[in-house]
């Protein structure tokens, strides 16, 4: 058994889990944060993407023990003070989700993508960057629109933050 401590959505948490426990299992089962989803078992679908120390990570590819001491943000921690994150707002505005199952991972990947590229994203880049996130409902059309719109709205601020 491993003792694991980390900061999740700004809150210090700790727990005991089997050594083989994946980060996604720790988040869902130990912490009860069920917004992070599991859609496959080969790290292909991206439904489980969270941010670990500021980077998008598929939480099914990492053991909970490996995240010991890390700063983790899940979909539940993205909005601040009741205010939706611009990417969340853009997904709603552009109908970038249908069943909602891939959505948390999509949004966490999109936030990371925009942080890395700032306002310089174009459609082709967004489509390539979303390669690790599978959606079966939307055909990606409106997800791409939402990411581009959020990127243009966030552009300047994220460039500063990234530099």
């Amino acid at each position: 058994m491993a003792n694991v401590s980390m900061t999740v959505n700004g809150r210090s948490v700790s727990g005991q889990c089997e050594d083989r426990t994946l980060l996604v299992q720790f988040i869902r089962e130990n912490l009860g944060l069920t917004g992070t989803h599991v859609g496959c078992d080969t790290s292909q679908c991206g439904a489980c993407v969270v941010h670990v120390d500021g980077k998008a990570v598929k939480s099914c590819t990492m053991l909970a023990a490996q995240a010991d001491g890390s700063e983790v943000v899940t979909i539940e921690g993205l909005a601040s003070g009741g205010e939706l994150h611009p990417v969340q707002a853009a997904f709603r505005e552009h109908h970038g989700l249908q069943c909602g199952f891939c959505t948390p991972g999509m949004i966490m990947s999109a936030v990371d993508m925009i942080q890395r590229h700032g306002g310089r994203l174009d459609e082709k880049t967004v489509r390539q960057e979303l390669e690790g996130n599978i959606c079966r409902c939307t055909g990606y059309h409106n997800i791409v629109k939402a990411v581009l719109d959020a990127a243009s709205k966030m552009g300047d601020g994220t460039k500063v933050a990234a530099e």
Partner: peptide, 13 residues
């Protein structure tokens, strides 16, 4: 815009 979206985009589905 969809009423149900709020819970899905905030991880509360």
């Amino acid at each position: 815009a969809r009423k149900e979206d709020k819970r899905f985009i905030t991880g509360k589905g």
